[in-house]
């Protein structure tokens, strides 16, 4: 069957798509205590950065979605990202123990975003989907984490990229368990975007 075309998310998704704790992918009850079904890697990591346009200006109305395996490598995900309050119809927030693997964050007026999660199991990357006004069709990219022992040459995507372009996919450690990852939609530092076939 022929696919339904994409259209831009537009400027007014802000009251519809973002949800409270959208960037709190790491279950708070696990991440704070370090109680860990998967060992010390169950402590939360923070990933933050900015989204820029082709003039280097911040993009204040971008929406980022994150999808990743759980720390144990499972890719089944779990419901509960948008957990609802059945009494008020509002949001109840995540339950603090379930790892759903899914996050959604909108950029602030200065183009910045941040989320907390747990390191993915089995792969060194998180998948990211970028939406924005002006973007007629979303863009996929990946955030690779420079974890100890990771060999970029063994990754089928990174191995095929020039070093300059490869760099755009690798998060920069800025503090313990904190990484920076900027998205450049266009320009000299343009992020590598992906097409899945």
């Amino acid at each position: 069957m022929l696919p339904t075309p994409s259209q831009t998310v537009g400027p007014f998704y802000g009251y519809a798509l973002p949800f409270p704790q959208g960037g709190q992918i790491a279950p708070a009850g696990i991440a704070l205590t370090g109680i860990a079904p998967a060992g010390p890697d169950a402590r939360a990591i923070t990933i933050h950065g900015h989204v820029h346009d082709g003039a280097g200006e911040p993009v204040p109305d971008a929406l980022l979605e994150i999808w990743q395996p759980a720390p144990d490598g499972s890719r089944t995900g779990a419901p509960g990202s948008l957990r609802r309050d059945q009494t008020t119809g509002g949001y109840a927030g995540r339950d603090g123990v379930t790892f759903t693997g899914f996050g959604r964050v909108a950029t602030d007026p200065d183009g910045s975003y941040a989320f907390q999660t747990l390191s993915p199991g089995g792969v060194p990357y998180l998948s990211v989907c970028v939406f924005a006004r002006g973007l007629l069709h979303h863009l996929f990219t990946r955030i690779y984490l420079p974890l100890p022992g990771v060999d970029w040459e063994s990754d089928p995507l990174l191995a095929g990229l020039d070093p300059d372009r490869r760099r755009t996919l690798i998060a920069e450690p800025v503090a313990e368990r904190v990484y920076r990852f900027d998205v450049h939609l266009q320009g000299d530092k343009e992020t590598v975007f992906l097409d899945f076939r």
């Binding site: 831009t8 082709g54 003039a55 924005a132 007629l136 863009l139 372009r165 975007f193 899945f196 076939r197």
Partner: peptide
Amino acid sequence: SSLLRHPKQPLVTVQD
């Protein structure tokens, strides 16, 4: 609005 918000490099194909 699309002028400064689209990549100029081709997308990289992933067949993994």
